[in-house]
Simulated scan of single mutants.
Amino acid sequence: MKTIYLLIPLLTAASTGFGQMQQLNRTPMKAPESVYIQGSDYYISDTGGDPTKKDGDGILYKMNSKGDISIFASGLDSPKGTWVLHNILYTPDVDKIKGFDLSAGKQVFTLDMAATGSVLLNDIAPMNDSTVFVSATDINKVYIVHLGAQPRYEELAFDNPVKGANGVIYDGKRQRLYVCGFGAAGTPNGEIGYVDLTQKDKKFVRLTDRTGYYDGIALTKHNTLLVSDWVAFEKKGVVVEVDLKTGKTTTVNKEPISGPADFTLSKQGDVITPAMMEGNVLRFSPKH
C-alpha cells in the first residue's frame, strides 16, 4: 500500500461540523484498523500490513487527546477489532484472541482459535461483561467467545452465511447481533443485516439490498446503524447510515476516506475512523 500523508488540522474542538474531516494523530501509522475510546485516550490497533501473516509487526497504540501516539503493546501479528472489558483490551490477532491489561500493556489473556481454520479473526463486540462475539472474515463465520480463566468458544450457527463476515455489534434491547460483510472473492458483495438470537432456527436477515466492502459497524442513539464501506481500494470510502425500520441508507460523510475500517463513536456522536490506507485516524460528525 502507498502511504499518503493528509495535511489536515488537528482536532481541537469537542465536536466537528457535518462532513468536516479532522486528523487526530500527529504522526502517521502503518495500517490502523480499529479505534476504541477509553476515557480521554484512544487505543488503535495497527495490523502492520498483511492481515493474516504472523510476522510480529502488529502494534497497539495509545493516543491522547492532543494526537500524541505511544506504543501500548508491540510484538503482535495483525491485531484488528478492539474492545475493553474489566480493564482489559481484547483484540483478535490472526487466529488468536489476545487481552492486554490497560494499566501496564501486559498481555494477560490468550485464546487460541486456530482449530476454526480462520487466519482472519476480525471484529469483536460484547454480548455481556464476560462474553463477546468475534467475526472470522475468511471463513464467513461468527463465534461466541466466553472469557475468563477457562475461556472457550463456539460457533454462532445461522442460515445464509455473511460473505466476508466483518463488523459485529450486539443490540441487547432487541437481542440482535448486527453483522456486515466485506464480501467474497474480492467483490464488493458484502451485506448488512442481523441475527435474531431469540430464535431457535437462526437466520441472517438483510436490512438493505445495498452491497459493498463493509467493515466497521455501530449502533446510534437515533435507532439506526452506521456502517463503513471501503467502496474501492483507494480514497473512495464512505460511512452509511441504515434505518433499522425501512432499510434506507444515507451517506453521512462528505469527504471520501481511504479505507474506513473499524470505527467507533464518541460521546458526542462523532465518527472516529481509521483511514487505513493512509495511516491516519479521522474524526467527523454525521448529519442528523
Rank of each mutant, 00 (worst) to 15 (best):
I4Q: 13
I4R: 13
I4W: 07
L7R: 11
L11G: 14
L11A: 15
T12Y: 13
Q23F: 02
T27Q: 15
T27E: 15
P28N: 05
M29Q: 11
S34M: 12
Y42R: 09
G49W: 02
T52N: 06
K54M: 05
D55L: 06
G56Y: 08
L60W: 08
D68P: 00
S70T: 14
A73S: 15
L76P: 07
I88H: 01
I88D: 08
I88K: 13
L89D: 12
T91L: 03
P92C: 05
I97C: 00
G99A: 00
F100S: 09
D101I: 02
L102E: 06
Q107E: 14
Q107I: 02
F109L: 01
T110N: 04
T110W: 00
M113D: 05
S118N: 03
N122W: 05
D123S: 14
I124D: 12
T131W: 04
T131D: 11
V134L: 07
A136K: 00
I139K: 11
K141Q: 11
V145G: 09
G148S: 05
R152H: 05
R152E: 12
L156I: 11
N160L: 05
N166H: 09
G172C: 00
F182A: 07
T187R: 14
P188H: 07
N189K: 06
L197G: 04
Q199D: 02
T208E: 11
T211G: 01
G212T: 10
D215E: 03
I217M: 13
A218Q: 15
L219F: 11
K221I: 07
H222Q: 13
L226N: 03
W230S: 09
F233W: 14
E234C: 09
K236L: 05
K236S: 14
V239P: 13
E241W: 04
V242P: 10
K248W: 01
T249P: 14
P256H: 08
I257Q: 14
S258D: 08
P260V: 06
F263C: 07
T264R: 08
L265Q: 11
L265V: 14
M277I: 00
G279R: 10
N280S: 15
P286T: 04
P286C: 03
P286Q: 09
H288Y: 10
